[in-house]
Simulated scan of single mutants.
Amino acid sequence: MKVILPNGDTQELVMGSLTVEELLQHFDISPGEVLVSKNKRIIPEDTILENDDDVRIMQVVFGG
Rank of each mutant, 00 (worst) to 15 (best):
S30F: 10
M58C: 09
I48D: 12
V34C: 00
G64L: 10
S17Q: 08
V60W: 11
L24K: 01
L5G: 00
K40M: 14
K2L: 03
D52I: 04
H26F: 08
E12L: 05
Q25N: 13
E33M: 15
P31T: 06
M1S: 05
V34M: 00
G8D: 04
L24N: 02
L24Y: 00
Q25A: 05
I4K: 14
L24S: 01
R56Y: 04
K38N: 01
I42H: 08
I48S: 11
L23C: 10
V20N: 00
I42W: 14
P31S: 06
K38C: 11
G63I: 10
R56N: 12
E33R: 12
I4D: 06
P44S: 02
V60E: 03
E12I: 08
N7P: 15
I48K: 11
D54R: 15
S17A: 07
V60H: 08
P44I: 03
T47R: 09
H26W: 06
F27S: 00
N39W: 03
G32V: 04
D46C: 06
G16F: 15
T19W: 08
Q25F: 03
G8E: 02
S30Q: 15
V61K: 07
M58G: 07
V60A: 04
E33T: 14
K38E: 02
G16I: 14
S17N: 05
P31H: 09
G63V: 09
I48A: 09
L49S: 06
E33H: 12
L49T: 11
D54L: 09
D52S: 11
V60M: 07
V34R: 07
L18M: 13
M15W: 15
D46Q: 13
L18H: 13
T47C: 12
D52Q: 12
I4H: 03
I29C: 01
T10M: 10
D28K: 01
T10F: 06
D52K: 07
F27C: 01
M58H: 15
P44E: 02
I29N: 02
V20W: 10
T19G: 03
V60Q: 04
L35G: 11
T10H: 06
Q25C: 02
N39Q: 02
R41K: 14
G8S: 05
K38V: 13
M15S: 13
D54Y: 09
Q59K: 13
D54N: 14
L13N: 15
G32T: 11
V36F: 03
V60K: 05
P6M: 05
L5I: 00
S37Y: 14
L49E: 10
L5V: 00
E33S: 14
F27A: 00
